[in-house]
Amino acid sequence: MNPNYRLPNSQDSYGFGFLDEFAKREIRRVILKAISIPGYQTPYASREMPMGRGFGTGGLQLTLSMIGPDDTLKVIDQGSDDSVNAVNLRKFAELTCPEVSTTESTTEASLIQTRHRVPEIPLRENQVLNFQVPYPDPLVIVEPSEAKRKIMHGEGDYARLLTKLYEDLVKFDEITISHRYPTRINGHYVIDPSPIPRYDVPRLNQSKALLLFGAGREKKIYAVPPYTNADPLVFDDVPFRTENFYDADGQRRACARCGCTDSFLDELNLEDGSKAWQCSDTDYCNRQLASTEAGEVTQ
């Protein structure tokens, strides 16, 4: 082997989107099967990515296998465009996908990769939301064998999961799952919708945009197609509850920054020991702030 040999310039680089074309083609096939079987965890050969598994490699592989020069990409981490995971993944996409635009605006994006939130602004039919999923299987807490879980999923047998929820009600008068709430898709498969808060679960139902879930470490891809029922697993007499952000007086807390009372709030611990609440979705917060400021200027 000649140590001075260099590949010709045209080959001395990554292909567009880092993944090779065979990897993309396999992920594309799996995406189509995942859409055809809503909620089914379709296995795929998750590739090694230049970042640790558990840092969003599943969502990233979904994004890279479908992205093209016409796309505008938004990457969020807990609603924020500027937290570390989002910044790193966005930089990686900018590095490996020349000509792709990136944005922080939900409305401008054609592809959105997300960690643990659904954007506040309702999505459109021509947008795709790719979730980064750490644990894809909701049955793993009640059945350790994957072979048995696959049969249970196929039969739509979620009795043991419902028993777990029932035990919570008996012990605590409340289902104690705060995020990753098991959700039934199209009346059959129950999915782990990734660690989104309960607040976001109703927004999976009859979504206008395609929702794709990629679990890189667990090597699974699943989908909630547009206009598909997504029902949180509950009992007839115990309705599903979401976070309500009421204070002790029963008042809905407002965002400390933009003042809106209709978004999901993050609780912040301030230096003086007090607490503040602020929108988790930074794009939504900036938008609210800009519209109130514009309103003040015109008055």
């Binding site: 292909g15 993309k24 594309r28 189509l32 859409i35 055809s36 479908m66 093209g68 039919e125």
Partner: peptide
């Protein structure tokens, strides 16, 4: 070409979505 295949895949993904 990879670009053609990416665009055609997006057409297929839309077709399966709707």
């Amino acid at each position: 070409s990879p670009l053609y295949q990416q665009r055609a895949f997006r057409a297929l993904m839309s077709a399966f979505s709707f």
